[in-house]
């Protein structure tokens, strides 16, 4: 464990806390893409298949349970909670995310470390996580005005993988045979998707103005 990875995990946790706060405090999920949240459930279930077979540390197991539990809770809330599901902007959340699932799975069948069930699903979860934010970013562009909590949620979500890139650079230089090219390349693509969002987020923060994404 290094400071970059710990900062990344904490930033990821903060993004989930901000989203849960928004939904529970405002009883609203307006501006949130249900498709992105569903993709994250698939990402965590596919990545943490070893949850009960490989024990790495208490921290690792607890965080996996938190990520799986919170992503399921958010999807449940947006689909079943009477007050919240009414605020879901279904007509704005139109990204065909099934293609992202299919494409990531096909890519995992082609590009993986070992052709085993667990490695294929791990690579699948890495590729899917890289594109999972797309429905949310498209929805933000469509909805134009972004409320503060939603903007902060996306910001922390983008920042977490940027910390992980620093973690991979650090491990590359400190651990002799550290090789994680699948996660590195995918993490770079993932963080690149946030580039324009980070730009507009910074502009809005500098001008102390509301976050406006160009349609």
């Amino acid at each position: 464990m290094n400071i970059f990875r710990f900062a990344g995990d904490m930033t990821h946790l903060i993004s989930i806390v901000v989203l849960l706060l928004k939904i529970y405090a405002t009883k609203s999920c307006s501006g949130i893409s249900l498709k992105t949240q569903e993709l994250y459930v698939i990402v965590f279930l596919a990545r943490y298949l070893d949850l009960f077979t490989d024990f790495i540390s208490v921290y690792n197991t607890v965080m996996k349970l938190v990520f799986i539990g919170s992503s399921l809770a958010i999807v449940w809330c947006m689909r079943m909670h009477r007050a919240v599901k009414r605020t879901y902007d279904k007509e704005l959340d139109t990204f065909r995310h099934y293609f992202l699932v299919l494409g990531s799975f096909v890519l995992a069948l082609l590009l993986h470390e070992k052709f085993t069930f667990q490695e294929i699903f791990w690579a699948f979860s890495i590729y899917l996580e890289a594109v999972a934010i797309l429905p949310q970013l498209v929805m933000l562009q469509r909805s134009g005005n972004v409320d503060n909590l939603t903007g902060q949620y996306v910001f922390f979500l983008g920042a977490y993988r940027a910390f992980y890139i620093l973690n991979w650079i650090y491990r590359f230089f400190t651990e002799p045979h550290f090789s994680r090219w699948i996660a590195c390349l995918s993490g770079l693509v993932q963080t690149a998707f946030y580039a324009d969002f980070f730009y507009y987020y910074f502009i809005s923060w500098k001008n102390n103005a509301k976050l406006q994404l160009p349609a």
Binding site: R5, M63, E175
Partner: peptide
């Protein structure tokens, strides 16, 4: 093995 140690990340 290599792949074992990289799977310690979330």
């Amino acid at each position: 093995s290599i792949s074992a140690d990289v799977k310690d990340e979330l």
